[in-house]
Structure formats: C-alpha cells, structure tokens
C-alpha cells in the first residue's frame, strides 16, 4: 500500500512532470476557454471585458457561417462514421480469417495511420486531379474537377468522405483485430458443434463478443469526426490563413475550422471562438452519453 507520508514524494516525482505539463497546456486552457466563453467582448491583450454573459454564444449561434459549419460537420459525421465502422469490422473479420498474407494486408491498411496528413492530401490531390488524375482516367469520367476551383459541394464532399473513411480504417482495424484475436476459439468450436452457419456465427457470436471494441471504435470515431479539420485542410488547403482553405468559398468548413478562423479574425473577441469550442464540447458530450446509454443493453463485457 502506498502511504502518503512515506511514499508521497515518490508519487509526486513520478506524477509531477506530467501533471505540470497537463496543468499548463490542458487544464488551464480548458478552464480558461470556459471562462472566456462567458466574458462579453473580452480583450485578450488588455484583459478587459464588459462583464459576464452569453453574448458570445448569441453571436456564434446566430452566425450563418457557424450553422453552415455545424451542418457540414454533422453531415460528415453521419456519413463517415457508420461507413468506417462497418467497413473496419468487415475488413478485420476478413483479415482474422486468413492466415497467409495477413501481415501484408495489415501493413497496407495501417499505412495511412503512420503517413503524414499533408502527404496524403498531396496524393489525393494528384489522384483526383482534373486533367491527369488517376480517378478520372480509371472511370473514364473526362475532365471532372474534384478538388479545384470548379468543384461542386457534393463532389468535394465525396472526395473528403473517401479520404476520411480510408484514413480512419487503419486504427479501427487494428483495435478490432486485437479484439477478435481475444475471442476464445472454443466458442467457434462450440458453434460448429451446434451447427451454426457462418452468418449466424458472425451475427450471434462474433459481433456480440466484439461489441465492447465496436462501441469503443464508434465513440472514438464520432469524437474524431466532430473534430474534423486537418483532413479538409490537407485536401483543400492553400496554406494557412488563405480564405479558401476549406474548398471554394470555404464551403466545407467544419466547426473546428470555424473556431480556428474566428481566433484570427480581426476585431472578433476570443470569447467567440471559446463559445464555439464549448458548444462543440457539449455536442460531443451529449452524443457520447447517448451512445453509452443506448449501447448498455447491446454491449456485452
């Protein structure tokens, strides 16, 4: 047992550096964000404000650009999360059932996870290039513009989803694969004795026993999808601060993108960006809570 008087200093030394760094770079900013969000017209440099209130939230929620960003983000979440989770389950199960070349395929699927986002963006820009892109020539589409100035909302959205799903698969496959390998093989033997078909084994044995991992990947992909920012920048970004970083007219701007832009917008108090962050935080919190509640009856630990 750890006793404070005797071992306290040991614990303090062990935890100290991490706690210090977290206090400065995580806890303080979080607390400060909440405070700033409620300070009306707060000037960061001079430190003066016009009292506490919800002015920032009113500004954010009545800004059509924020609502547009929120709509974009929700759309990305709703489309990318189910596709990513379902695809990753299928791929993980398939990988788990083969013996030869498993390591090879595992590496292929894991590559995007360890590759630089900007590099991936460049690759996509090449693949989906209007004039000499692989995608257009492969499907014989002619000179369709996907990521350039002449793209449409849905075309750009399509490419973004392909990128997001493909990029998100890696981590989920690894998590699910380790979950699959932890399932006792004897359940499958028992199911074979019980005469279960492959589909029933998948539905009735694999999925339920994998459900904790599926819940984990679902929640993390929801959170990740709500925070989407870098993938849009890496696909459409023309450099920091450029006005078209989220596609033509910033049409694919996300909530995080909105918050970031607000930070640098001249004449906009920091409180507006903070309020945006708090709203995003509340949305993610609510969705996670709902997921946990819904999955309680469906997840078997």
């Amino acid at each position: 047992m750890l006793e404070w008087k005797k071992d306290g200093w040991k614990a303090a030394i062990a935890l100290g550096p991490t706690l210090l760094i977290m206090a400065v770079f995580t806890f303080y900013p979080i607390v400060n964000t909440f405070i700033m969000a409620f300070r009306n017209n707060y000037k960061f440099l001079s430190g003066v404000d016009e009292g506490f209130g919800i002015q920032n939230f009113v500004t954010v929620l009545s800004d059509p650009r924020f609502l547009g960003a929120l709509k974009n983000t929700l759309l990305m979440v709703v489309v990318s999360v189910p596709i990513t989770v379902i695809l990753s389950i299928l791929i993980a199960v398939a990988l788990n059932s083969i013996e030869r070349l498993r390591g090879f395929f595992q590496t292929i699927f894991f590559l995007p996870y360890v590759t630089n986002t900007i590099a991936l963006g460049l690759v996509f820009n090449t693949v989906f290039h209007k004039d000499f892109g692989l995608f257009n020539s492969l499907f014989n589409l002619g000179a369709v513009d996907w990521l350039g100035a002449e793209t449409t909302y849905w075309r750009a959205f399509f490419v973004l989803m392909v990128y997001t799903v493909w990029n998100g698969l890696a981590f989920k496959i690894i998590v699910l694969l380790s979950g699959l390998q932890n399932i006792d093989k004897q359940y499958y033997q028992a199911a074979a004795i019980d005469g279960a078909s492959k589909w029933r084994i998948f539905r009735k044995i694999t999925i339920p026993l994998l459900s904790p991992m599926i819940l984990y990947t679902t929640i993390t992909s929801f959170i990740g999808a709500f925070k989407v920012y870098t993938s849009v920048i890496s696909l459409f970004g023309k450099g920091a601060g450029a006005s078209n970083s989220f596609g033509p007219d910033n049409m694919l701007i996300t909530v995080v993108g909105y918050i970031y832009n607000k930070l640098w917008e001249a004449g906009t108090p920091f409180g507006v960006a903070s309020a945006g962050s708090v709203i995003l935080f509340v949305i993610i919190l609510l969705i996670t809570l709902i997921q946990r509640r819904v999955s309680k009856s469906r997840v078997h630990y």
Partner: peptide, 16 residues
C-alpha cells in the same frame, strides 16, 4: 461436426 448428430460438452463448458 454439425452433421454427425453429436453433443459435446467442453472442459470449460464454453457457454456463450
């Protein structure tokens, strides 16, 4: 196994 008409009880039961 499923066509043999056998019932097998595993050592650790393997209940789902």
């Amino acid at each position: 196994p499923e066509k043999r008409g056998i019932g097998l009880v595993f050592q650790n039961y393997s209940l789902y």
